[in-house]
């Protein structure tokens, strides 16, 4: 709207009215993230310099950086740390694959059949409310100190979000879609594969993302409690030697494995659920 007749003299008022934006709101994300990181390291350094915390408990940023370089070098030349990381990676891959297979099957049973929902769901909910990490000693007792007990624990931790995601996904189709498939004379399998499963994919992937975090937690906990030759064991040894700088650096490399797992799920989701607009963005777990 141009108020020409109301203010004929105000020709200089042609500039577009803009909402004031504060300087802070204009900072781009990358700059903001770097600034936050610098502030974090600065506070860390200050705490170390102040002498309030013993250097044995909190390593300085410099020591940590040295350890990051050391561990990175060890990984790059393929020394024992790379072997340990590979063992943990294998545990994560095996248990994630197992969790997907078992979780999806159970999810379809619970979500698609009334019997599964009545017979299985109460047990699944009951087990899901238990602290699953507490089962670690049992798995070690049953399966030994080798990779198997870690895979079992990680699978156990990761399977429930996938069951829930799959079952919720199968219930996500609305009444209209069900009615439409009925009028088309679709069989139960057709309804499942052509409508319910695709409709439920976003829920399934939400479950997968939660599971990808759980699978890491399960594998590392298994290694803490059950020994072996994985990355968790390296962390445990470094911590027992009060080498906090080493612990920090190992965790940072371990988190790369977690990021890779999560990123793989997001990548697959973008390919398969291309119609869902905001697949990651600010809300990573939906």
């Amino acid at each position: 709207m141009t108020p020409t007749h109301a203010q004929p003299a105000a020709s200089s008022a042609d500039t577009v009215w803009t909402e004031p934006v504060s300087l802070i709101d204009r900072i781009p994300r990358s700059i903001a993230m770097i600034a936050m990181f610098i502030a974090f390291v600065a506070i860390w350094q200050l705490v170390v310099l102040s002498g309030l915390v013993s250097p044995i408990i909190l390593a300085s940023p410099k020591e940590t950086l040295e350890q990051i370089v050391f561990v990175g070098h060890n990984l790059l030349i393929g020394d024992y740390m790379l072997g340990a990381l590979w063992i943990t990676t294998k545990e994560v891959i095996y248990s994630f694959a197992l969790a997907i297979a078992i979780g999806f099957s159970l999810g379809v049973m619970v979500g698609e059949t009334g019997f599964g929902e009545r017979a299985l769901m109460p047990y699944l909910v009951a087990i899901d409310t238990m602290p699953k990490i507490a089962f670690a000693p049992l798995f070690i007792a049953w399966l030994g100190f080798d990779i198997h007990s870690k895979v079992a624990l990680a699978t156990f931790v990761a399977v429930f979000p996938i069951v829930v995601g799959t079952a919720a996904g199968l219930h996500a189709a609305d009444e209209n879609a069900r009615l439409l498939f009925k009028t088309m004379g679709a069989s139960r399998l057709q309804t499942l594969f052509k409508m319910k499963l695709p409709t439920g994919l976003p829920h399934f992937f939400t479950g997968l993302k939660i599971a990808s975090v759980g699978v890491m937690a399960g594998a590392i906990t298994g290694e803490f409690l059950g020994g072996g030759k994985g990355f968790g064991e390296l962390i445990r040894v470094a911590a027992s030697q009060l080498d906090t700088a080493r612990v920090f650096s190992l965790i940072i490399y371990l988190s790369l494995l977690g990021l890779a797992t999560f990123g793989a799920v997001v990548w697959v989701q973008r390919r398969f659920v291309f119609w869902q607009k905001s697949s990651v963005g600010g809300n990573a777990l939906t």
């Binding site: 209209n176 439409l180 009028t183 088309m184 004379g185 409508m195 409709t199 659920v273 119609w275």
Partner: peptide, 19 residues
């Protein structure tokens, strides 16, 4: 006596499948 192909139906919602 059941859904038939010679019956066409349309609902309030278009219910197109996004994939």
């Amino acid at each position: 006596s059941g859904p038939r192909r010679d019956i066409g139906m349309m609902f309030q919602q278009a219910t197109l499948f996004p994939w």
